[in-house]
């Protein structure tokens, strides 16, 4: 059972205090957008073996959504960061590379 550090309140929360929100950094596709863009936004989810960005909510805590970079193969957590960003931050990319020097962000 995972533990993640909430970047807002600093609590090391365990999985039962969190709710998952699946893939992070999706770009919303609104009215007028082409079908393939909308399909990608709604349904096309990455499933990498390795570093992955996820949304989690500290539901039994401060209630805030945050993002986590996590290895889907080993369950290592590279770091957590606030949700008010539109893509992986330089800080989190550096944390991933510190342990996975060859890692490249996917599309």
């Amino acid at each position: 059972m995972l533990t993640l550090e909430c970047p807002y309140c600093g609590v090391w929360a365990e999985e039962t205090e969190l709710t998952p929100g699946y893939e992070a950094h999706l770009k919303r596709s609104g009215p007028g957008s082409p079908d393939d863009a909308f399909e990608s936004y709604m349904f096309a989810r990455k499933n990498p073996k390795g570093a992955h960005f996820e949304r989690w909510r500290h539901a039994y805590g401060c209630g805030k959504w945050f993002l986590a970079a996590r290895c889907t193969a080993t369950l290592e957590v590279f770091g957590t960061y606030p949700a008010q960003v539109s893509g992986p931050t330089p800080g989190i990319i550096a944390k991933i590379r510190a342990r996975r020097p060859d890692w490249e962000p996917s599309e």
Binding site: T19, G21, R55, R57, A59, G63, K64, W65, A83, Q84
Partner: peptide
């Protein structure tokens, strides 16, 4: 939770 999700994220 739905409201907070859209407002926060």
């Amino acid at each position: 939770a739905h409201m907070e999700d859209w407002l926060q994220c």
